[in-house]
Design a binder for these strands. Structure first.
Lengths: 172, 172
DNA sequence: AAGGTAAGTCAACAGGTGATTACTTGGATA
DNA sequence: TATCCAAGTAATCACCTGTTGACTTACCTT
């Protein structure tokens, strides 16, 4: 349901009300309970849509790093304007949303990226990379820090590429 | 007010109710309006307490990086059990909380760290470092990813040190 | 045409929210 | 002692929340 995705992305799980979602979708709030059981059920359905990292498969390390940096800067749009990580961050105040986020988004993405990385500590490397991406989202979307604005994209990308390369380089 | 800090940290701004805060503090909810004007006023007062990066001043780069990595892993406790970044992340669903976070926490911390770093693009470097720290908080606290659990602290610290060093090294 | 089933609507619920108001108390000042 | 002011309390306001149950509508099958 597109309206739910948009609303969850705009305000996070807690602040998004079923009434607003339903009215944006042009339907009745009662339908949410009917079809998804509850609000958290709707959230679960929305978060099924994971970021797909398959396009990164087989890329040599420098290009993979560059692609990851683009994701961190919001330049890649793998899910058509819907950013599950933004939803996850904005929803992190809710305890019940956290469970959904961990099972539907967090651990699956770590596993997915770890498989692409391979080698020693690949889970931890993937976790750190995804943390860097998440952190950039926090800085740009939530905190809206001046230093991370799009004006400095080129400098930021260079920094991110260096950081991610340092994490992923296998020389240890 | 200690109870407010604890409650905001536990649930974020939106989900924390003035009634719960007041009852935890053993006082009347009306006192919040009286002394802080409103709930957001209380939040503003709580977020005044910024992370103090002064202890990092004058440290050579390798030690500064290590200290920052410790902060990212939650090993440093510069504000006595109160973690403004956790509050910021968990509160990022609320629009009004965002303003407070940006002005009281985000930009001040960037400036503070940028001053310690110096050199070209110090604002961006500081922003990326703080993003990495924030991201690790997201991964460990909100998403609670297995790969980032305390079991792997030594491997994680090594990765973080490499990443941060790559960001902060002046050779460019 | 009749019956059944799914889709959708509407009003109401019980509970929780932040904020305001009028009121009582306690201690200091003059 | 009488007065005043700040501190704290209790009740209440108007609003919003997710969810439920009874009801109407439309369509499809027999």
């Amino acid at each position: 349901m597109g309206a739910a995705r948009a609303e969850f992305q705009r305000t996070g799980y807690e602040a998004a009300s079923t009434r607003k979602i339903a009215s944006a979708a042009g339907c009745n709030p009662a339908l949410i309970s009917r079809y998804y059981g509850s609000k958290i059920g709707l959230f679960e359905a929305v978060m099924e849509e994971c970021i797909d990292l398959a396009p990164l498969q087989g890329l040599p390390l420098p290009e993979m790093v560059e692609a990851l940096a683009d994701i961190a800067l919001g330049k890649a749009d793998p899910t058509g304007g819907f950013d599950p990580l933004v939803v996850a961050i904005k929803s992190s105040g809710s305890v019940e949303a956290q469970d959904v986020i961990r099972t539907k988004l967090g651990n699956p993405m770590v596993k997915q990226l770890a498989a692409l990385i391979g080698g020693n500590n690949s889970d931890q490397k993937a976790g750190v990379i995804l943390s860097i991406i998440s952190g950039m989202f926090v800085g740009r979307v939530s905190v809206d820090a001046e230093a991370l604005s799009a004006d400095h994209d080129s400098a930021l990308k260079e920094l991110l590429v260096h950081a991610m390369t340092a994490v992923l380089s296998p020389d240890r």
